[in-house]
Amino acid sequence: LFLNVQAGHHILDMCAAPGSKTFQLLEMIHQSKEPGLLPTALVIANDLKVQRCDVLIHNTKRMCTANLIVTNHEAQSFPSCSLAKDDSEAYKDHCKPQRLEFDRVLCDVPCSGDGTLRKSHDLWRKWSSSMGNEFHLLQVNIAMRGVLPYLKWVVGWFTQLAQ
Protein backbone atom coordinates (compact mmCIF):
# COMPACT_ATOMS: atom_id res chain seq x y z
CA LEU A 1 0.00 0.00 0.00
CA PHE A 2 2.94 2.34 0.73
CA LEU A 3 4.00 2.15 -2.93
CA ASN A 4 0.58 3.42 -4.10
CA VAL A 5 0.77 1.37 -7.30
CA GLN A 6 -1.34 2.62 -10.20
CA ALA A 7 -2.55 0.95 -13.41
CA GLY A 8 0.04 2.69 -15.60
CA HIS A 9 3.14 2.29 -13.44
CA HIS A 10 6.35 0.53 -14.35
CA ILE A 11 7.50 -1.41 -11.29
CA LEU A 12 10.76 -3.22 -10.55
CA ASP A 13 10.74 -5.94 -7.89
CA MET A 14 14.49 -6.43 -7.43
CA CYS A 15 14.53 -9.57 -5.22
CA ALA A 16 11.15 -11.01 -6.10
CA ALA A 17 11.12 -14.75 -5.32
CA PRO A 18 9.08 -16.53 -4.10
CA GLY A 19 6.59 -14.06 -5.54
CA SER A 20 3.95 -13.17 -2.96
CA LYS A 21 4.77 -9.44 -3.09
CA THR A 22 4.95 -9.59 -6.89
CA PHE A 23 1.52 -11.21 -6.94
CA GLN A 24 0.19 -8.40 -4.74
CA LEU A 25 1.66 -5.80 -7.11
CA LEU A 26 -0.06 -7.50 -10.04
CA GLU A 27 -3.35 -7.55 -8.12
CA MET A 28 -3.00 -3.83 -7.43
CA ILE A 29 -2.43 -2.88 -11.06
CA HIS A 30 -5.39 -4.96 -12.18
CA GLN A 31 -7.68 -3.52 -9.49
CA SER A 32 -6.74 0.09 -10.24
CA LYS A 33 -7.72 -0.01 -13.91
CA GLU A 34 -11.00 1.21 -15.34
CA PRO A 35 -13.56 -1.54 -15.91
CA GLY A 36 -13.18 -3.11 -19.34
CA LEU A 37 -9.63 -1.85 -19.88
CA LEU A 38 -6.39 -3.75 -19.45
CA PRO A 39 -3.72 -2.09 -17.30
CA THR A 40 -0.75 -0.60 -19.10
CA ALA A 41 1.48 -1.25 -16.08
CA LEU A 42 4.54 -3.44 -16.23
CA VAL A 43 6.06 -5.42 -13.37
CA ILE A 44 9.60 -6.67 -13.80
CA ALA A 45 10.27 -9.32 -11.16
CA ASN A 46 13.92 -10.21 -10.75
CA ASP A 47 15.78 -12.85 -8.78
CA LEU A 48 19.38 -14.03 -8.80
CA LYS A 49 18.76 -17.76 -8.70
CA VAL A 50 17.14 -19.65 -11.58
CA GLN A 51 15.41 -22.08 -9.22
CA ARG A 52 13.85 -19.16 -7.34
CA CYS A 53 12.73 -17.64 -10.67
CA ASP A 54 10.97 -20.93 -11.43
CA VAL A 55 9.14 -20.70 -8.08
CA LEU A 56 8.32 -17.05 -8.82
CA ILE A 57 6.81 -17.97 -12.19
CA HIS A 58 4.85 -20.83 -10.65
CA ASN A 59 3.47 -18.60 -7.88
CA THR A 60 2.44 -15.76 -10.22
CA LYS A 61 1.11 -17.93 -13.06
CA ARG A 62 -2.37 -18.09 -11.58
CA MET A 63 -2.65 -14.30 -12.09
CA CYS A 64 -2.70 -14.97 -15.86
CA THR A 65 -1.35 -11.56 -16.87
CA ALA A 66 0.73 -10.18 -19.71
CA ASN A 67 2.00 -7.39 -17.45
CA LEU A 68 4.80 -9.45 -15.87
CA ILE A 69 8.38 -10.02 -16.99
CA VAL A 70 10.62 -12.29 -14.90
CA THR A 71 14.37 -11.69 -15.10
CA ASN A 72 17.36 -13.54 -13.70
CA HIS A 73 20.09 -11.06 -12.77
CA GLU A 74 22.20 -9.83 -9.85
CA ALA A 75 20.05 -7.12 -8.28
CA GLN A 76 23.05 -5.00 -7.27
CA SER A 77 24.02 -4.64 -10.94
CA PHE A 78 20.56 -4.77 -12.53
CA PRO A 79 20.94 -3.34 -16.04
CA SER A 80 19.15 -0.32 -17.42
CA CYS A 81 16.16 -1.29 -19.51
CA SER A 82 14.70 0.16 -22.69
CA LEU A 83 11.10 0.22 -23.77
CA ALA A 84 9.81 0.89 -27.27
CA LYS A 85 7.36 3.78 -27.18
CA ASP A 86 4.34 3.31 -29.41
CA ASP A 87 3.79 6.85 -30.71
CA SER A 88 1.45 6.80 -33.68
CA GLU A 89 3.82 8.99 -35.74
CA ALA A 90 6.99 7.17 -34.69
CA TYR A 91 5.33 3.78 -35.12
CA LYS A 92 4.97 4.34 -38.86
CA ASP A 93 8.73 4.52 -39.21
CA HIS A 94 9.87 2.44 -36.25
CA CYS A 95 9.49 2.30 -32.51
CA LYS A 96 12.34 4.12 -30.85
CA PRO A 97 13.50 2.48 -27.62
CA GLN A 98 13.64 4.83 -24.66
CA ARG A 99 15.20 4.29 -21.26
CA LEU A 100 12.66 2.62 -19.01
CA GLU A 101 12.25 4.58 -15.81
CA PHE A 102 10.45 2.76 -13.05
CA ASP A 103 7.68 4.52 -11.18
CA ARG A 104 8.16 2.22 -8.21
CA VAL A 105 10.99 -0.03 -7.02
CA LEU A 106 10.42 -2.77 -4.45
CA CYS A 107 13.67 -3.86 -2.84
CA ASP A 108 13.29 -6.67 -0.29
CA VAL A 109 17.00 -7.47 0.09
CA PRO A 110 18.29 -10.91 1.16
CA CYS A 111 18.32 -11.26 4.93
CA SER A 112 21.19 -12.21 7.21
CA GLY A 113 19.44 -15.43 8.21
CA ASP A 114 19.39 -14.75 11.94
CA GLY A 115 15.59 -14.75 11.99
CA THR A 116 15.49 -18.35 10.76
CA LEU A 117 17.45 -19.57 13.79
CA ARG A 118 14.26 -20.00 15.81
CA LYS A 119 12.84 -22.32 13.11
CA SER A 120 15.98 -24.23 12.12
CA HIS A 121 17.74 -25.39 15.23
CA ASP A 122 20.56 -27.00 13.24
CA LEU A 123 21.61 -23.53 12.05
CA TRP A 124 22.68 -22.60 15.59
CA ARG A 125 25.83 -24.65 15.16
CA LYS A 126 26.66 -23.10 11.76
CA TRP A 127 25.52 -19.49 12.10
CA SER A 128 27.72 -16.67 13.41
CA SER A 129 27.37 -12.91 13.52
CA SER A 130 30.08 -12.60 10.87
CA MET A 131 27.86 -14.62 8.51
CA GLY A 132 25.09 -12.11 9.09
CA ASN A 133 27.46 -9.18 8.62
CA GLU A 134 28.61 -10.58 5.26
CA PHE A 135 25.17 -9.76 3.86
CA HIS A 136 25.36 -6.10 4.87
CA LEU A 137 27.40 -4.91 1.87
CA LEU A 138 25.20 -6.88 -0.53
CA GLN A 139 22.07 -5.42 1.09
CA VAL A 140 23.40 -1.86 0.79
CA ASN A 141 24.52 -2.38 -2.83
CA ILE A 142 21.12 -3.73 -3.86
CA ALA A 143 19.29 -0.91 -2.09
CA MET A 144 21.58 1.70 -3.65
CA ARG A 145 21.08 0.24 -7.14
CA GLY A 146 17.34 0.49 -6.61
CA VAL A 147 17.34 4.06 -5.32
CA LEU A 148 20.18 5.90 -7.11
CA PRO A 149 18.39 6.49 -10.43
CA TYR A 150 15.48 7.94 -8.45
CA LEU A 151 17.35 9.77 -5.70
CA LYS A 152 16.07 13.18 -6.81
CA TRP A 153 12.47 11.90 -6.63
CA VAL A 154 13.05 10.23 -3.23
CA VAL A 155 14.52 13.42 -1.71
CA GLY A 156 11.56 15.42 -3.04
CA TRP A 157 9.09 12.86 -1.70
CA PHE A 158 10.62 12.88 1.78
CA THR A 159 10.72 16.70 1.72
CA GLN A 160 6.98 16.78 0.95
CA LEU A 161 6.34 14.18 3.65
CA ALA A 162 8.20 16.26 6.24
CA GLN A 163 6.13 19.38 5.49
Rank of each mutant, 00 (worst) to 15 (best):
I69G: 03
N67Y: 05
G156I: 07
A7Q: 13
C111L: 08
N133M: 15
N141K: 10
C53W: 02
L38M: 11
S112E: 04
C107Q: 07
V5G: 00
E101Y: 00
Q76W: 02
M131A: 11
Q31I: 06
V43M: 02
S88R: 05
D103Q: 12
P35C: 09
P110L: 07
M63A: 08
C15V: 13
R99E: 15
S88L: 12
R62G: 11
P35M: 11
Q139G: 06
V155M: 09
G156S: 08
A7P: 12
F2N: 11
T71W: 00
R118H: 03
N59D: 10
V109R: 00
A143D: 07
Q160G: 04
R99H: 09
E34K: 03
Q163M: 15
V154Q: 12
L117G: 03
K85M: 12
R104A: 15
A66P: 13
P35W: 06
M63P: 11
G146R: 10
V50W: 10
Q163Y: 13
N141S: 06
C15N: 01
V43F: 00
A7K: 13
L138M: 14
T116L: 13
P35K: 10
C107T: 08
Q98K: 13
N4E: 15
H58V: 07
D54P: 00
L123Y: 07
K126Q: 12
S32F: 02
C53P: 01
Y150G: 08
D13L: 00
T40M: 05
Q160M: 05
A143F: 11
A90S: 11
R104Y: 08
Q76E: 10
N59T: 06
T116D: 08
Y91A: 15
M131I: 13
C64H: 11
L123S: 08
H10L: 03
V140Y: 09
G115W: 03
L37M: 13
F78C: 05
Q24L: 15
G19Y: 05
S20V: 12
W127H: 07
N46E: 04
K119V: 13
G156P: 03
V43T: 01
H30T: 05
R104C: 15
F2C: 10
P97Y: 04
V105L: 07
R118P: 00
L48S: 10
D13E: 03
L148D: 04
G36D: 09
F135Y: 08
G113S: 05
Y150R: 10
S20M: 12
C111H: 00
K119M: 13
V70Y: 03
D47W: 02
P35R: 09
D87P: 09
K96Y: 05
V140A: 15
L38W: 00
D47I: 14
W124I: 08
S77A: 13
A41G: 06
L38E: 08
L138G: 05
H73M: 14
F78K: 00
Q98F: 09
